[in-house]
Structure formats: C-alpha cells, structure tokens
Design a protein around this nucleic acid. Structure first.
Lengths: 341, 341
DNA sequence: GAAATGCTTGGGAGCGCTCCCAAAAAAAGT
DNA sequence: ACTTTTTTTGGGAGCGCTCCCAAGCATTTC
C-alpha cells in the first residue's frame, strides 16, 4: 500500500482536497452524506495525513516534549520516574499526541538539546520535571521562548509558570502526625537534598507536625539524604547514635536504605524503631517489612500534567495554573501499627 | 526573536536559499569563504531549520520511535526498562535524533498507535522491545510496512529482522556453573515467563550448566516466575519443600522476592541457601545481602540498538543484523563466595 | 584564443497539507 | 417567481524546506 495523499482520497471520494481536509479535522459545513462518503474512503484506504505536511501547514506538530533535566539523572535509582513517565505516555496516547522524550545527563547535553526544543515547530508544548534548584534556568528559557510548558513539581521561586505538584507538606505532616499518635517521641527524618522543593516541603511538613504536637525538634535527628538507597543508608547510620524511635524518610527508597542500616545495627522493625516512607511504589513492599508510606497518585499526576499542557496549548498560557494533588497515608507494618508498645 | 527562515538567512548572507541549504546539510560545492559567511550568519542568528518543513521536503523526520508493547507493562516493576530507556535516549541525543516514546498498555492502545507508527513520515525507524511471544504481531506489521526497525531482545522465530540481544544462555550458564563450583548440589531456578525469549534462554543456560557438570535436573526445582518481586516470592515458596541449596533467578527483582521467601522460612543467606540474580541493577545491593548477579551492559545495549537502527535507516534494512552482547558475572555475597561450606 | 571542462550559484518545482476566498448550490424570505 | 441569505464546495496560495536543472563563472586544454 503506497502511502496515499489527501488528494488521492479526494479523487476516490469524488470531492476536493478541501472537503477531505474538513472531514479530517471535524470541521463543520460539510453535507452529511458527503462526510460519510469521505469517511468511508478514509477508512477503507486507511489513509492518514502526513504528519510533517500537516505540521508545516498548520504550525502545529501534535507532539509534546517531556524533559528530564540533567539534575534528574537519578531517574534510574528512583522508580518514581518510570511510573510518572508511563502516566504521561498513556495520557499522550489517549489524546493522540506524540511524546518526545528528552533525557539529558549533562549540562552540555542540556544546552545542545535546548536549541531544538525552543525552535518553534518541533514541539507544541513541553513538560519539565523540576523541583530541583538547578532547573530554574531551563524553565526560564522556556518562558522566554514562550513555549507552552507545565512544570512537574513545584519550581523554585517561579510562579509565572504553570505547574502540578503534590501536597508534600501535608503528606509529610500526616505521616509524622501518625507516628506521633502511635506514641513515638524521638522521630527523625531523612530529607531530600536541599535543592529539591519536594525534599524541602516534606521537611516542612515534618517540622510542622512536630511543633503542632509539642515535640521539640532535634537537629541530630534531621539528616539530609539524596533520594537514593545508599543515601538513606548512610543518613540512618549517622542518625542512630541519637537514638530515634521512629523515622520519616522523604522517599521509599531512602526508607529502604535506612531500614537496612537499622537492621544491621541489630534493631527490630517496627518494635525497636518505626519507619514511614514517601511514594508508595511497588518496592515499598519488597523489603522484609511492609513499608508504611505516603501514597502519591503518580499516574494521575502525569495525566493531569498532560491535561493542563494541552489546555495551555489550545487556550494560551495565561494565567499560569497551579495544581496541587492530595496524598494518602498507607499504613502497613513498618510504622508499628497494630503493635502495642 | 521571531523564528526566521532559511530565506532570511540567505538574504542576510547575500546568497540564495539553495546555498544556505547546502551549508546546512554539509554538502560540497560551496566556496569556502561563502560557506564561512553563511555559517557565521547561522550562528549569530541562532537559526535552526523548521523540522516539519525539512521533514516534508526531505521525507526524513530525524525522529525514531521506541515502542514498548503492551506485553511490557511491567515496565514499572522492573527497573531494567528505565535503564534501557536512558541508554537509548542518550544515544539519540548524541546523534541529534528525536526520540518518540510509545508506551502502550492495552492491546487496543497498540492498534491505535500502530496506524500512526506505520504511517511513513512520522518516524524514520523504530526500536521495539520484544522477547515476548505476543510481540510477533507488532514486529510483523512493521516488517510489512517496511519501516526500518531493530528489535531489542531476540524475537520469537523471526530472523528476517535485525535485533540486539544479550547472551542470555551464556550468562545463565556461567552463573549456574559458578554455583556448582561453589559446591552446591541442589540448584533451583526461577525462570521468566514461558513467552519470554530471555526467560527461555536463561533456563536453557541453567539446564546446560547442570548437564555439563553432571547434575541431574529436578523439575521440583524449576519454577516459573514472571519477572516481578512477588512472582519470585511465590515461586520460592513453592520451591522450598524441595530443599534447594542454591537458586538462580532469571532477574534481580525475582531474586529479591525469592530471598524474602527464604528469609521468612528461617533460612540464612548465603549459608543455608545461595542466590544468584540476573541484571545487576542498583537494587541488587538494596536487600540485606548483596546480590551476586549477571551484569547486563544495559546502557551500551540501548546505544547499540540505536546505532544499528541509524545504520539501517541510512543504508537499507537488508540483510538483517543480529548482535549478541556478552554479560559478566558479578560476585557478591549472596552466592556464598568467600564462605566455606 | 576558442572550446571544453569543472565548480559554484540561483531559482523553479514540489513535498502534502491547511486556510482563505470566491463560486456554486441550497434554503429562506417576499 | 425572483431575490436575499446561508450553507457547501473547489481551487489558489503558501507553510519552509530540499532537490534538480540550467546558467554563470573560473579553470584547463589544444
């Protein structure tokens, strides 16, 4: 089947190019029987318009970009990203948009790719994973280029851009409050890196829960991690001398690392020390003890980002929209629920 | 900066459209000083050709597709896929190709997306993750459509297509042989699903090692998993009554599940029972015991696939090329190396 | 010094669509 | 019946590039 053109279809249906184009784009002012006839030809021939031709004429590529800046090279070690990616990909498929993936791992690569992203014509809009301090530049450039964009995660001190984020503060707050209600007194936290808004917000939630319940904060119980398993492990090792009886880790994977350290120190989970993570990814259940954690609606989150972006593309980027999605505390074994102390 | 066209650049450089095009595409027959002059204008203006216009005129989109068929919906639970994706994305960036991601999770979604993939003009070529029985159809359609494609993983009984794969048989063979050398006698295996070539090949390697070393196979020690943690866990539970003293799991994540089951049964790893996995992903080191495993060169693997695909795009798809990459056994604690029995 | 050869350059045509405008057809109004 | 209004249809122009061909120019050859 040689790829046919709109003109071929027109000939077969006995109409003009324009009419076929109208049918193709669901435009009004086509007689019903003509529309049906054209549609029939399209279907039997399996005709599809040439994407490049369409893009050229309409200045609209039907493609959106998903950018993971180089600061997100832990794409791997944290299973959060593939989940997110999947949600986004699915939403794109559903809307018949093509998803272009830009996974950059160096500052230089970012520069290089940037010129092609900002070139109008390739992408109708861009999704940028952010939440990291270093991503401001990328976002700023996209704003300057006036490319419709939605930031995934709250950007640093930039409000003139649309973003979707989850309620990290509240999620952390609820998790820690739960730990307090369970009777824990010395609750530590392993935070995300200081350049990460998600990490910062979760720490804020932790502190808020402490103060609201009248527990005083102890800096020996606040360690910075890097969202990796090893980061959690080493942070925990440092925290152990301060004798925490519970730990809130800002991600599941750090919780897993932290539990490894606790176990090595001969502590039993959850009787000697309780843990709560953040994410609720499948791996939350892999370790010996089922992890209590804060569930993020990752897939819906990605879908929401796509939804907003498409809206921006169609209706203009102003005013910027900010969406905050709620989390849910999932109680399993590691926090010691169901166990008397 | 309004996006300028090739014609604008031409005017500024005092030459014609054609000359600029020649410079842009590194074509010969342009006087050196003219070329420099044009190049200077391109650089100062930051001009980039409009992708769609270029694609339309050249019938070449500079975009390749990465297809994960619906049978690969465990994209998530297995960290192998993000690693692979990253390798591929990086290779694309390097070659200035755009990567379009097609992550399908239903049979219907596959159909839908397919018409757009096979439409000439969108993609110059396609990378298809395979190794699963159900993917034959996808691959077959792509062959029919004569779209350049490289299959990632060995396809089922289809040799008229290019693919890259790793040497699963040998990898498994080496792992099991190592276990035998360590003195283990009752070596079980948790295989991949029967519709997966990787799973099948690893099983073949296991059997080969057994027979070559004169161990008789015991069907009670051969359980089928599904490449998930839970699959590994339940397979191990079933295997335990048969008293294995070592287990070769066809993926790291299944090994982790299996070790969880073993621990729950009160067994010590590696003194009571040894484990070897397959993949060597970061999570191999997360569990209590560091996992001995077969390392796949995942990133290079992806890069290789891209390399072959670009070659196919430029030089035609015949004859199909088959690349098999070697693995490496990474010895850590879980196999009991360094421990006398 | 004229003819032949090789490089370099410009411009027309065309890739396959969408968009606009004007013509044709149908519907409505008098 | 004829005019006016509305709906439907066709075709030209153009999106921004590449490719081809012919013209222009420099260089070589006899």
């Amino acid at each position: 089947m040689p790829d046919l053109t709109l003109e071929d279809v027109a000939k077969q249906a006995g109409v003009s190019r324009s009419t076929v184009s109208r049918v193709l784009n669901d435009q009004p002012n086509v007689r019903k029987d003509v529309r049906n006839r054209v549609q029939a030809v399209i279907e039997t021939t399996g005709f599809r318009p040439h994407p490049a031709a369409r893009a050229l004429a309409s200045q609209h590529s039907w493609t959106i970009g998903l950018v993971y800046p180089h600061s997100v090279s832990y794409f791997f070690t944290d299973p959060y990203y593939p989940h997110l990616t999947k949600g986004i990909a699915q939403a794109c498929n559903q809307s018949s948009y093509t998803l272009a993936l830009f996974l950059v791992d160096t500052k230089e690569g970012e520069e290089k790719i940037f010129t092609s992203i900002t070139r109008k014509g390739l992408l109708d809009g861009v999704l940028v994973q952010s939440g990291h301090h270093g991503d401001q530049e990328v976002i700023g450039k996209l704003i300057d280029a006036k490319i419709p964009q939605v930031v995934i995660g709250r950007p640093f001190r930039q409000d003139n851009v649309s973003y979707v984020d989850i309620d990290n503060i509240n999620g952390a707050f609820n998790a820690v409050t739960h730990l307090i209600r369970m009777g824990h007194k010395r609750i530590g936290t392993i935070t995300g890196p200081g350049q990460s808004t998600a990490g910062l917000d979760r720490k804020t939630g932790y502190l808020k829960a402490l103060s609201e319940r009248g527990l005083k904060m102890d800096t020996a119980l606040i360690l910075e991690g890097d969202f990796t398993e090893n980061g959690g492990y080493y942070a925990m090792k440092k925290m152990l001398p301060a004798k925490p009886d519970a730990v809130f880790a800002a991600s599941d994977i750090m919780a897993i690392g932290a539990m490894r350290a606790a176990r090595e120190a001969g502590l039993n989970i959850p009787t000697d020390i309780a843990f709560v993570g953040f994410d609720d990814l499948p791996l939350a259940t892999f370790s010996g003890v089922q992890l209590t954690t804060v569930r993020q609606p990752v897939a819906q989150f990605g879908a929401k980002a796509v939804e907003i972006l498409l809206d921006l593309i169609e209706n203009g980027i102003n005013p910027p929209r900010h969406i905050i999605m709620e989390t849910e505390l999932v109680i399993r074994e590691s926090c010691g629920a169901g166990i008397r102390k």
